[in-house]
Amino acid sequence: MVNAYSTTLGDRGGAARASIERTAEVVDWCSGVFGPYPFEAQGGVAGPIDGIGFALETQTRPVYGPGFWRRGSNPYVVVHENTHQWFGDSVSVADWSQIWLNEGFASYAEWLWSEEQGEGSAQELFDLTYGYYPADADFWQVLPGDPGAGDIFHDAVYDRGAMALHQLRLAVGDDAFFRILPAWTAEHAYGNGSIAQFQALAERISGQDLDELFTTWLFTAGRPEPTAATRTALAPAQPRSWAGIRAAHQLLDR
């Protein structure tokens, strides 16, 4: 484990350390959800105050821009970038149109971490995210499964991408869902994968035809109707994780 911190961070240095020093804890948790850690080394780099304005899932050493620490510590960006060690660094996309396989999964990992930490359930985060974007927002016109060259890092790839995975989880149930994730990282380790291959795997493990779900949530413009009841209309209270997740997503990979 090697972590490095710029000496220029000033009063943000403490928040950077409080976040990045949880890397081993995060990697251990990820290993329990996604399968064995695919590399030998791990760590993180907190860049200088005048450095990059985003985070990057550099293999075994994610790099974090100083903006992530402007409001204090934020482990959610650490979860996001370390999830990429499985989804992006070990299993790489077949081409950039498949970017959902990286960003949707790393974003949904934040929701799963929130559940693990008792800071809000994935269902609560789905409800809030679904309601965060009005039905007529341009957000719903970007297709996470094929966003186009100019939108590969669009909010829809991250947030609608996470919503798509939650709908998959609800459709197949937790037992199948949490077998699908490590099966994917094992079958495609150190190689490439496509959305079609992921769908085929999910259908094989769940025994369900998932074509309508994948088409609706990844490849159809407009705000989909959830396949399970949503509490969005009841304006659920924001879970404790919401602020950290939103703060992280304002800077991720932009």
Rank of each mutant, 00 (worst) to 15 (best):
N3G: 10
N3C: 15
A4N: 08
T7E: 12
T8Q: 12
G10R: 02
D11R: 00
G13D: 07
A15V: 05
S19H: 01
S19R: 01
V26R: 05
V27A: 08
D28F: 00
W29R: 08
W29K: 05
S31G: 14
V33C: 02
F34T: 03
A46F: 03
D50K: 07
E57S: 15
T60Q: 12
G67C: 05
S73D: 05
S73R: 06
V77M: 05
E81P: 10
E81K: 03
T83A: 15
W86E: 10
F87K: 04
V91G: 07
W96L: 14
S97T: 15
S97I: 06
W100K: 12
E103W: 08
E116V: 11
G118T: 10
A122L: 03
Q123S: 13
F126S: 02
G131R: 12
D136P: 00
V142C: 04
L143Y: 03
P147Y: 13
D151G: 00
D155R: 14
Q167C: 08
L170C: 14
A171M: 13
F178M: 02
T185A: 11
Y190R: 14
A200K: 12
I205M: 11
Q208W: 00
A221E: 13
R223V: 07
E225F: 04
T232G: 02
L234K: 06
A237T: 05
A243K: 09
L251Y: 04
